[in-house]
Design a protein around this nucleic acid. Structure first.
Lengths: 147, 147
DNA sequence: TCATAAATGCAAATGATTTGCAATTGCAAT
DNA sequence: ATTGCAATTGCAAATCATTTGCATTTATGA
């Protein structure tokens, strides 16, 4: 009868306890259409009258990342880490340098490129991260936005 | 008669004074085959008996990045920023998750992809960053290296 | 219900990077 | 070469995100 049935089982399978804080954090991330910083998550929870400590937020995010329920990313000109629920598998990011809006891109143009590089470099390539930067439609023209 | 003639003029053109510290930092970066953290640069200078303050290192790196003489990057699992002299224009990175060695890749497979994305997303794309991760030849097999 | 390991809160520590301010230095004009 | 001034630097202290030690609480399986 839970709305978090989806990840509830993944938590259990990974040996992580299914605490109210963990579920709350996951709920926040699932509902967000943008990767969020730890503090944003903390503040969102606070608004929902959920009392939680920043340490717990960080520790929870770390656990969730380890079991691959969420992804941690860092974008240019933001020294904080951002966290995103893994709705889809492989993904990339298109970041607006004006308003910092982040669009998640699901298709990946690098399929064969990794193979090429492997033979060129003797690396065993495990994966990659791709960030594209630009101005979203709202931020074109007036290019003086902050966040 | 200077060996740093290359960037000496770029400094001047940008209105930055050509101080011994700036030249020393640039020398270190030019000679390095790896992007370096601020502290590595500081320690390298110290070995050369060049006495400099970390604040100066950071401020210098920031200035040099602004005039596009160097590039600042961040790789996975390293919370420090790394800095690299801009020998070539556009570049990407292949990072060994074992020994943290970084190989700079000069060719870019994303030429037409940006165009595609622009029409799909209404973004005006300015650029991108691509990091590939894997094990270098030395780190394959024994995958328990640290740094 | 109980036992126990995992999760949490709290406060303090960390560690990279930044900043205010006074002293120094590069450089252009004299 | 000398001078004047803004840019640069050193120093110490501040920041700010993130981490950690430890005592307390809680989820879960027996």
């Amino acid at each position: 009868m839970g709305e978090h049935a989806e990840y509830e089982e993944k938590l259990k399978k990974s040996g992580l306890k299914s605490t109210k804080h963990r579920k709350a954090i996951l709920d926040v991330l699932v509902k967000s259409n943008q990767p969020m910083a730890a503090e944003q998550i903390y503040l969102t929870l606070k608004e929902s009258k959920i009392d939680i400590n920043m340490s717990t937020v960080y520790r929870t995010l770390e656990s969730l990342e380890q079991i691959d329920l969420i992804t941690k990313i860092s974008i240019m000109d933001d020294d904080r880490m951002l966290f995103e629920y893994n709705k889809i598998g492989h993904r990339h990011y298109l970041v607006c340098v004006g308003c910092k809006k982040i669009i998640t891109i699901k298709n990946c143009p690098l399929g064969s490129y990794e193979k090429e590089l492997e033979s060129e470099t003797d690396f065993e390539i495990l994966g990659h991260k791709l960030y594209l930067y630009g101005y979203c439609s709202e931020c074109q023209g007036s290019q003086m936005n902050s966040r």
